[in-house]
Design a protein around this nucleic acid. Structure first.
Lengths: 166, 166
DNA sequence: TATTGTTATACTCTATAACTATA
DNA sequence: TATAGTTATAGAGTATAACAATA
């Protein structure tokens, strides 16, 4: 809503006021950056993740842990390779994460029925119970962070973002 | 558009097919994660940044360098403190970045007219020329990455994202 | 006393190469 | 030969504490 005051020309390379002026309003001109999807998506994501880290800390889950646990819960028997492909993670970075979740008793590793190389990942009852709470907390926090959006706008935003990365 | 096949109930905790089945379609159920703005915004941002790194490498600019340079260009005389506040950076992490840009002859540091502690940052002609090209490249790459969106959808997406972090 | 910019440093995240066991 | 999982490690990114100079 705090948009630039809309000057007539399209390009505004020089700022209206000199930032070197110790003016009370030291608002900078970021109109160009705000036209970039990458910039805006990153800023929005980081803003949400900041609160996510705070609210999910009691569960001992960071964003990546959360997305991995959630995917395992919803896809019992999933393999590491599938997780990597789906969540865009690198295999070496998933190893320690999986080991940690297993050590905490949140998941179990079972031999894969058809492939001796692969290992099926399953959430334990403890892990499932934790994720029911964690997902609820995450959903709540997300609604707070997107409070300025109507439900319709929120749905639109999700759909449009998926058109970029899917 | 490759949405889940829309089962009647709202909640779908168990997947339709067992992922342990070495099925040709090893598509996982990520319907829950896709309802999270943080997840989608992060995935979209990373997707764009991936191409950004590739296309802007010839300029020797990464996303943070780019946003700093762009902000300096559009706000001559801006201080480090202002950059940190506007771009959500931490002062210690900006020091090396500024020194690097100065060493490359892209910016100049001039004493601040009113505040002896502060230093005004200015893009050199070389830096300005580089950024004209870099911004054009960035804008082009962004349009490629958002090719599935109509201009109206693109504008909507930018506006909605800003409602989250601004 | 508060602020700007800085140094040093630690911690996390991400990426690459190479190895094993199985297909 | 190709793939799943692993190990070790390097590099980038992000964070905190403490300091000097100036307001």
């Amino acid at each position: 809503m705090k948009q630039a005051p809309m000057p007539s020309p399209k390009k505004a390379r020089a700022p209206k006021v000199d930032p070197a002026m110790g003016s009370a309003i030291d608002q900078l001109d970021t109109t160009y950056l705000q036209t970039l999807m990458g910039y805006n998506a990153r800023r929005a994501a980081l803003s949400i993740i900041e609160l996510f880290l705070e609210r999910l800390a009691p569960y001992g889950l960071k964003p990546v842990d959360f997305s991995v646990m959630s995917t395992i819960c919803h896809n019992p028997g999933v393999t590491s390779r599938q997780l990597c492909a789906t969540l865009n993670l690198l295999p070496p970075n998933l190893v320690g994460l999986i080991q940690s979740l297993e050590a905490r008793g949140l998941i179990e590793r079972k031999p894969h029925p058809h492939d001796g190389r692969a290992v099926g990942l399953h959430a334990t009852p403890k892990g499932q119970a934790l994720m029911v709470q964690a997902e609820q907390t995450a959903t709540e926090l997300e609604l707070e962070k997107t409070a300025k959006l109507t439900p319709a706008q929120r749905k639109t935003l999700l759909t449009l973002l998926q058109k970029i990365y899917l």
